[in-house]
């Protein structure tokens, strides 16, 4: 790793910190968009609080302070991991969200992996047979996937696989009340994940297939591909050793741009398949009007997304040594 690269990554890290700060401030502003404050919510819930108690509580939580002081308190709180308290769930927002985060990350990571793998494979295959019948068929299937919203795919899969065929579990992450060895547990979770992952990734399979096809076609026209053939390499070597890595670069960029969208899609997937993830948590807290919890989910997701984007940046610099000059 050289100096240019370190500079570049340092710059990206700095940018990310600025973005996080903006997100936190935005979240504070949203919280104040809500009619009534935390104490009103609490009062509404208990129903027996008098004005004096409410005033005391406001002083205790700093809600009588000027806006800027409240903002400062909020930001420093968030930086220390204090995302607020959920009175409905009698627990801190952070621990509620962290309990649910692993399921969502599992879902999103598996979906990205499936989407990139199948999408790239289909796109490269189509590019290799460009304008032949198989390319046209792939393009048409991709077009339909591309037009199908996540919740439709989810519902469709539920109807076909678990209601009609009764092959796979329709909900949850683990079969409840059964003692299992680690291996059995992994198998069980995998079975529960097949449908959610498929429904979340189908749309992205379509995107990556389109992208990989276009970028493969472009790469195959490059001079260095001709050089590789001129060396005496066979077609499969040229594709795998020389074209694929270059063709993957736009796909990697796209994954970074879409990771936030995937977390959004996870809300729908988790709701349909009753997975215990943060999306489901957000959905439930919307109907309970538990705003600190919803915003906590939003904040934690943003942190995770920023982190993932930094990792993707790192992967990109490993795949393409030219980033140091493009920066």
């Amino acid at each position: 790793m050289n100096r240019h690269l370190l500079n570049y990554l340092g710059w990206r890290l700095l940018q990310s910190l600025v973005v996080i700060t903006i997100v936190v401030i935005g979240s504070f502003m949203l919280l104040h968009l809500v009619p009534g404050d935390m104490v009103d919510v609490l009062g509404g819930q208990r129903g027996d609080m008098d004005a004096e108690l409410m005033a005391t509580l406001r002083t205790r939580y700093g809600l009588d302070q000027p806006m800027l002081v409240q903002l400062f308190n909020y930001v420093t709180g968030v930086l220390q991991g204090d995302l607020g308290y959920s009175f409905r769930n009698s627990n801190t927002v952070l621990s509620l969200v962290l309990q649910r985060l692993p399921a969502t990350i599992l879902l999103v990571v598996c979906s990205v992996a499936v989407a990139v793998f199948i999408g790239t494979l289909a796109g490269v295959f189509a590019a290799r047979h460009v304008h032949r019948p198989i390319d046209v068929i792939i393009s048409m299937v991709v077009l339909v996937f591309y037009a199908t919203p996540v919740f439709m795919t989810g519902l469709g899969l539920v109807i076909i696989f678990s209601v009609k065929l009764k092959l796979l579990p329709v909900g949850g992450l683990i079969t409840p009340g059964v003692d299992m060895t680690t291996l059995q547990l992994v198998g069980d979770v995998a079975q529960h994940l097949i449908l959610p992952v498929l429904s979340l990734s189908l749309f992205y399979i379509a995107i990556y297939a389109r992208l990989a096809r276009a970028s493969m076609l472009q790469v195959l026209n490059q001079d260095y591909i001709r050089t590789a053939y001129a060396k005496g390499l066979g077609t499969s070597h040229v594709i795998i050793g020389h074209a694929l890595r270059n063709a993957l670069l736009p796909v990697v960029t796209m994954v970074g741009l879409q990771i936030a969208e995937l977390f959004g899609g996870a809300v729908l997937t988790e709701t349909i398949f009753s997975l215990p993830g943060v999306g489901r948590l957000a959905y439930d807290s919307v109907f309970e009007r538990d705003y600190p919890l919803i915003l906590g989910v939003l904040l934690v997701c943003s942190f995770v997304i920023i982190l993932v984007n930094l990792i993707i940046d790192l992967i990109y610099t490993l795949l393409d040594p030219r980033v140091e000059v493009s920066r």
């Binding site: 935005g26 936030a260 959004g264 939003l298 943003s302 997304i305």
Partner: peptide, 23 residues
């Protein structure tokens, strides 16, 4: 552009849910 970044960092659909439920 950093503000744009911030908006792109928040999961869009989740953000829309929050906005609709608040508004």
């Amino acid at each position: 552009m950093r503000i744009t970044d911030a908006f792109q960092t928040i999961p869009g659909f989740l953000f829309a849910i929050v906005l609709v439920s608040i508004l």
